[in-house]
């Protein structure tokens, strides 16, 4: 089931003294797949001060994923952590997110 897979890579920064992590997410970012990844993501978010999400080769994105990101942003703000996004999306997905006003979470 290739298409239903989420692909996740967690890359902590190798610079000394820097508490930073890159979380690279690919493929299916939906309710079908994120349940399994949720804890991994949250764990990293709690561990580092700077979190950079990179969304690449995304087939599909849904509300559950956007909600998770929103929740992370909300929590991070309270803990004085920095969250940033590096997003590459297809036109179809962009339009879907714009039309539902969800793209504002990815800023």
């Amino acid at each position: 089931m290739k298409t239903k897979d989420i692909n996740i890579q967690i890359k902590p920064s190798k610079k000394k003294g820097e508490s930073k992590v890159s979380i690279i997410l690919e493929n299916e970012l939906t309710i079908f797949s994120i349940e399994s990844m949720k804890d991994k993501i949250i764990e990293s978010v709690m561990k580092y001060d700077q979190i950079e999400f990179a969304l690449k080769n995304v087939n599909n994105i849904d509300i559950t994923f956007i909600q998770l990101l929103y929740s992370i942003k909300k929590t991070a703000e309270e803990l004085n952590k920095k969250v940033s996004f590096d997003v590459e999306l297809s036109d179809d997905i962009k339009s879907l997110l714009n039309h539902s006003d969800l793209s504002k979470v990815l800023i």
């Binding site: 994120i34 949720k38 559950t64 909600q67 998770l68 929740s71 539902s100 979470v105």
Partner: peptide
């Protein structure tokens, strides 16, 4: 369209299968 996320909880409490967003 205006999406509202104020009902989305923090990460300790979030249930990924639920919808918190409204428009």
């Amino acid at each position: 369209v205006f999406a509202h996320f104020n009902k989305v909880p923090e990460i300790e409490e979030i249930d990924i299968t639920k919808c918190y967003t409204y428009w």
